[in-house]
Amino acid sequence: MKEQNKKKILLRLFLSTLYLSAFTFGGGYVIVTLMKKKFVDECHWIEENEMLDLVAIAQSSPGAIAVNGAIVVGYKLAGIAGTVTAILGTVLPPFAIITVISVFYQAFQSNWLISQLLEGMQAGVGAVIASVTLDMGTPVIKEKDTLSIAIMAGAFIAACFFEVNVIYIIITCGLIGVIRTLTSGWRTKN
């Protein structure tokens, strides 16, 4: 009976994550919100407070947030089997879509119309990234935390002008975070 129940949960988990992954545009933050709706509000598989913390884990860990979200939810519901199931559901749709697109991309790259379209879209995607940077950077500046602003300026100079490997910048800033958390307790600032 219990075995049966677990299979049912795994199947539903797979179908839910597959569906969410195939139809969610707008990145990890959106998909995690939809996961909460699905697993907390509709299925009642996870409690709301616990889900909020699981989402926090997904967002603070390295890697794609959608994948991380699938891992925490899968793990909570059915252990390692749940994790594998949820990851498969989340990764299969983009994997299939990009595989098809990459075949077409090689073929269409030489087409004049497509190449013009893609070139124009480069300016468009540059604008999207500029806008995202503005949205993400403004709160950092508004907080008036000197260390945060110094990190932001330093990281930009290191990455853009000195072409320092991104991995070293991440490690350095992570260490600063550890020291800051251990010495002062960053929460007092929030």
Binding site: D53, A56, I57, Q59, S60, S61, Q122, A123, V125, G126, I129, A130, V132, T133, M136, G137, V140, L147, S148, I149, I151, M152, A153, G154, A155, F156, A159, C160, V166, I169, I170, C173, G174, I176, G177, V178, R180, T181, G185, W186, R187
Partner: peptide, 28 residues
Amino acid sequence: NLDTLQGILYSLRPAVVSMIASAGVLIL
């Protein structure tokens, strides 16, 4: 308890913004 983890992320966020900006500059 997630405090340490979120503390680290708090310091990483400004750096992440800068690196996204830097990648954006190259795209432009």
